Measured scan of single mutants.
Amino acid sequence: MAAGGDHGSPDSYRSPLASRYASPEMCFVFSDRYKFRTWRQLWLWLAEAEQTLGLPITDEQIQEMKSNLENIDFKMAAEEEKRLRHDVMAHVHTFGHCCPKAAGIIHLGATSCYVGDNTDLIILRNALDLLLPKLARVISRLADFAKERASLPTLGFTHFQPAQLTTVGKRCCLWIQDLCMDLQNLKRVRDDLRFRGVKGTTGTQASFLQLFEGDDHKVEQLDKMVTEKAGFKRAFIITGQTYTRKVDIEVLSVLASLGASVHKICTDIRLLANLKEMEEPFEKQQIGSSAMPYKRNPMRSERCCSLARHLMTLVMDPLQTASVQWFERTLDDSANRRICLAEAFLTADTILNTLQNISEGLVVYPKVIERRIRQELPFMATENIIMAMVKAGGSRQDCHEKIRVLSQQAASVVKQEGGDNDLIERIQVDAYFSPIHSQLDHLLDPSSFTGRASQQVQRFLEEEVYPLLKPYESVMKVKAELCL
């Protein structure tokens, strides 16, 4: 049975990233139509530049190519590739079939990587351009969430054990800070992308030097003109047959890092959902379990974690691919890159769409948070109580021993009897502590235990987050809708 299948058929496997999760716009960027249309555009740009620099290419040939950029006979191309065992030459023939007058000058002087690699770089750039505003929107939604809850005390956790208090907004800023680093890295790697350009079979530009009869300047002009037509500021000066596969490492490393950030955020949300302090959106008709109707599973956060793990592992592909590119190139890269580049971007696209949807509907339960604080705060307040007693004339050592005994009794009630923490009640009825009984409410005010959390939130948002989001103001209103 021949390899390949009808990918629109229910009898043929289709990647869930495309069929179930990723956005239509990201799927289109990695589609065959987008790819092969870009090949034709690159052939047109090459012909236009070659004509401008004096090669015998007519206006009629150029116009014929322009008129057929979208006229792609995919069936013919597939048949040609089956016959020739070469995808680029299959599309040269297919393009030439609908451009008979231009057929002889299509791909003039070029090698397969002229269309293959340059198209990949265009796709990487455009895919990054799709991700950047999506990530900015996630940051914006979380920034709104953090600002609104900047002063809401909550129990902090280290080692997932109760620690000092923080605020809900401050905790959210930990998430935002990681995503801001990801946004900066995505922008950097996007701006650092260079075009492969017009380089020939081993990167020496020998074929173009021959076409222009040894004119170095025209060869350099050709490279520059096509690079500018493709919208790049610069091209690699040095290439082998391909652009260095280190570029793929750079791009997928940034995406993998984004995956790590999203995994951490969504894990926190899942843990908070278990504590009943916070939940992701839950639709009115949504079913959490087929057997347990009360369940409210954090399905979206779980999906993000599941896909983020996949995204983090994909960076190993370009690392290994770059390491086995012998001399000017081997074909070890080809099949692998067809999979890992598309999957990385479709996965990143999915987790950003999902995280935006989550961040637009996060639900906080202040009463649950308050109750958990009441359970733990008495123990945390013991040092403040000791200091207040010393100020009232008591002995630190005597007070410490009193607190120690009462704390152990209260802990026994919590752990052995399943009761509430009654340390404060014990202190309130103990005559030894009568000098500070009137101060206990103040000493137990949760806001006095959150330090500068709310001020940190305000400063972080104003100095770091809002300036970073400013270039994306025009796209901030787009909502994230999930079908599944």
Rank of each mutant, 00 (worst) to 15 (best):
L44T: 06
P318H: 00
W45G: 12
H437V: 10
M225R: 11
Y114P: 01
R270V: 04
P471W: 15
P435S: 11
K199S: 09
N421T: 07
E25F: 05
L121C: 13
P446I: 05
A90T: 15
Y466K: 15
G393R: 07
D32Q: 14
D120N: 08
T354W: 04
K147I: 11
E343M: 05
D182Q: 02
D216P: 09
L362M: 13
S261D: 05
L179E: 01
D117W: 00
S23T: 06
L461E: 01
A230E: 04
T158G: 00
K101V: 12
Q455D: 07
D332N: 00
T119W: 03
K295N: 05
D182K: 00
L44E: 06
R85Q: 00
P133K: 15
L193N: 04
I106F: 08
E213G: 14
K35I: 11
R37Q: 15
K295S: 03
D73V: 07
P133R: 15
H263E: 03
S257I: 08
G361P: 07
C305Y: 01
A388T: 07
M292K: 03
L341W: 11
T111N: 04
R20T: 01
E343H: 12
E376D: 10
V29P: 01
Y365G: 03
F327M: 13
S151L: 10
M299H: 10
L155W: 02
V219D: 01
L314A: 12
L469G: 04
I249Y: 08
Q61F: 06
F30C: 09
A235V: 15
H107M: 01
K415L: 08
M76V: 15
V324D: 10
W43Y: 05
D182T: 01
S151Q: 12
F208D: 04
V262R: 01
D333R: 00
V254W: 07
C304T: 12
F28H: 11
F460G: 03
D268L: 01
S434L: 11
L152R: 05
H86N: 00
I123L: 14
K147D: 11
E343I: 05
I386G: 05
P366V: 05
K233C: 11
L222R: 00
V465M: 06
E464D: 12
Y21K: 01
A22G: 11
A410C: 07
D59V: 10
I265N: 06
R371V: 02
N353M: 13
E277W: 04
G451N: 00
I369F: 03
I385Y: 08
M316E: 05
Q205W: 00
R83V: 11
R245T: 01
E280H: 00
P446A: 07
S151Y: 11
A77D: 10
E48W: 02
P318K: 01
T158V: 01
R194Q: 10
L44D: 04
P100L: 08
D223S: 07
V254S: 11
T154Q: 10
I386C: 10
K233V: 12
E280T: 04
Q51R: 10
L443Y: 05
F433N: 04
I269P: 02
A102P: 05
D117A: 00
A3D: 15
K477W: 09
S140L: 15
E360D: 14
D144Y: 15
P153L: 01
S395D: 15
N71V: 11
E463V: 11
Q184I: 10
E425P: 08
R137F: 09
I287V: 06
E64M: 09
R37G: 11
Q416R: 10
A273I: 07
A388D: 02
W326G: 04
A18L: 15
I176S: 06
S447W: 14
F449N: 04
G203T: 03
S12D: 06
L311N: 00
G169P: 02
R188N: 09
E70A: 12
R125S: 10
M316F: 09
P100T: 12
